[in-house]
Deep mutational scan, measured.
Amino acid sequence: KRPMNAFMVWAKDERRKILQAFPDMHNSNISKILGSRWKAMTNLEKQPYYEEQARLSKQHLEKYPDYK
């Protein structure tokens, strides 16, 4: 399994927040909201998630050095 990218790292927690506020919302609508919010964020706001992506990628490479 591939490591999560920056968007997926961010969306994991954001999806939970949306589901808590709107428990009956369909997944497709949640995904649209998440995509819009991510696009509206600045690079500075996204930076911590890119850093986490890099950490996860490094960890994955160490754990699975032959992964293609």
Rank of each mutant, 00 (worst) to 15 (best):
K1R: 09
K1C: 11
K1V: 06
K1T: 10
R2I: 14
R2F: 13
R2V: 14
R2N: 15
R2Q: 13
R2G: 11
R2T: 14
R2A: 12
P3C: 04
P3E: 15
M4N: 11
M4Y: 09
M4D: 13
M4F: 03
M4R: 11
M4V: 10
M4P: 05
M4L: 06
M4Q: 15
M4A: 12
N5C: 11
N5F: 01
N5K: 03
N5E: 13
N5A: 05
A6Y: 00
A6P: 09
A6H: 00
A6W: 00
A6S: 04
A6V: 02
A6E: 05
A6T: 02
F7I: 00
F7W: 04
F7A: 00
F7C: 02
F7K: 04
F7V: 00
F7D: 03
F7T: 01
M8A: 12
M8T: 14
M8C: 06
M8Y: 03
V9A: 06
W10G: 01
W10V: 00
W10C: 00
W10R: 01
A11N: 06
A11P: 00
A11D: 00
A11F: 05
A11V: 02
K12N: 12
K12L: 09
K12W: 02
K12T: 14
D13Y: 15
E14Q: 06
E14M: 14
E14G: 03
E14V: 12
E14N: 00
E14K: 12
E14A: 10
E14D: 00
E14W: 08
R15M: 11
R15V: 08
R15N: 03
R15E: 10
R15I: 09
R15A: 07
R15K: 07
R15T: 09
R16Q: 15
R16P: 12
R16L: 12
R16A: 13
R16K: 12
R16E: 15
R16T: 09
R16D: 11
K17C: 03
K17F: 02
K17L: 05
K17D: 01
K17E: 03
K17G: 02
K17S: 06
K17I: 06
I18F: 03
I18E: 01
I18K: 00
L19K: 13
L19V: 11
L19D: 03
L19G: 05
L19P: 00
Q20M: 08
Q20S: 11
Q20F: 03
Q20P: 02
Q20H: 06
Q20W: 02
Q20E: 12
Q20V: 04
A21Q: 15
A21R: 09
A21K: 12
A21E: 15
A21C: 05
A21M: 14
A21N: 12
A21V: 09
A21T: 12
F22Q: 15
F22H: 15
F22K: 04
F22R: 11
F22I: 01
F22A: 10
F22C: 13
F22D: 15
P23C: 00
P23V: 00
P23T: 01
P23Y: 00
P23Q: 02
P23I: 01
P23L: 01
D24L: 04
D24K: 08
D24M: 06
D24Y: 02
D24R: 07
D24C: 05
D24E: 11
D24G: 09
D24F: 04
D24P: 00
M25A: 06
M25I: 05
M25R: 01
M25F: 04
M25N: 01
M25Q: 03
H26Y: 02
H26S: 15
H26I: 07
H26M: 09
H26R: 12
H26P: 14
H26K: 14
H26V: 11
N27Q: 11
N27T: 12
N27H: 06
N27G: 13
N27I: 14
N27F: 10
N27E: 15
N27R: 11
S28W: 13
S28N: 12
S28F: 09
S28P: 06
S28H: 07
S28L: 11
S28M: 09
N29L: 13
N29P: 03
N29V: 14
N29W: 10
N29Y: 10
N29S: 12
I30T: 00
I30R: 00
I30L: 08
I30W: 01
I30E: 01
I30Y: 00
I30Q: 01
S31A: 13
S31V: 11
S31L: 11
S31W: 14
S31I: 06
K32I: 08
K32N: 06
K32W: 05
K32H: 09
K32Q: 07
K32Y: 07
I33H: 03
I33F: 03
I33M: 11
L34V: 01
G35K: 15
G35W: 10
G35M: 15
G35A: 14
G35E: 10
G35P: 10
S36R: 11
S36V: 12
S36E: 14
S36W: 06
S36A: 13
S36M: 06
R37P: 01
R37M: 09
R37Y: 01
R37L: 06
R37G: 04
R37W: 07
R37T: 05
W38V: 00
W38F: 01
W38P: 01
W38R: 00
W38L: 00
K39E: 14
K39D: 08
K39Q: 10
K39M: 05
K39V: 06
K39P: 00
M41V: 02
M41P: 02
M41E: 00
M41G: 01
M41A: 02
M41H: 02
M41C: 01
M41K: 02
M41F: 02
N43D: 09
N43Q: 11
N43K: 15
N43V: 10
N43P: 13
N43Y: 07
N43T: 14
N43C: 09
L44K: 12
L44G: 11
L44M: 12
L44I: 09
L44F: 09
L44Q: 14
E45Q: 09
E45P: 02
E45D: 06
E45W: 07
E45K: 03
E45A: 05
E45L: 05
K46R: 08
K46S: 01
K46F: 00
K46W: 00
K46H: 01
Q47S: 06
Q47N: 03
Q47Y: 03
Q47G: 08
Q47D: 03
Q47V: 06
Q47C: 02
P48D: 05
P48W: 06
P48T: 04
P48R: 04
P48M: 05
P48S: 05
P48H: 04
P48L: 04
Y49Q: 06
Y49A: 04
Y49F: 09
Y49C: 04
Y49W: 07
Y49E: 02
Y49V: 05
Y50W: 04
Y50M: 06
Y50I: 07
Y50K: 04
E51P: 00
E51F: 04
E51H: 05
E52F: 03
E52D: 07
E52P: 02
E52I: 02
E52C: 04
Q53M: 09
Q53C: 15
Q53L: 14
Q53E: 15
Q53G: 10
Q53H: 15
Q53N: 07
Q53T: 10
A54Q: 13
A54G: 05
A54S: 10
A54F: 06
A54C: 11
A54R: 11
A54L: 09
A54I: 13
R55C: 05
R55G: 07
R55V: 07
R55T: 09
R55W: 06
R55Y: 04
L56Y: 04
L56T: 05
L56V: 08
L56G: 08
L56D: 09
S57A: 13
S57P: 06
S57Y: 12
S57R: 11
S57I: 12
K58P: 06
K58N: 10
K58L: 10
K58D: 13
K58F: 07
K58E: 14
K58I: 10
K58M: 11
K58V: 09
K58G: 13
Q59W: 03
Q59T: 09
Q59V: 10
Q59E: 13
Q59Y: 07
Q59I: 13
Q59C: 08
Q59A: 13
Q59F: 08
H60E: 14
H60L: 07
H60Y: 10
H60A: 11
L61R: 13
L61S: 11
L61N: 12
L61W: 09
Y64A: 14
Y64F: 10
Y64L: 13
Y64K: 12
P65A: 10
P65R: 08
P65D: 11
P65C: 06
P65I: 07
P65F: 02
D66A: 08
D66G: 11
D66Y: 11
D66I: 06
D66P: 12
Y67E: 15
Y67N: 15
Y67L: 12
Y67P: 14
Y67M: 10
Y67S: 14
K68L: 09
K68Y: 09
K68V: 09
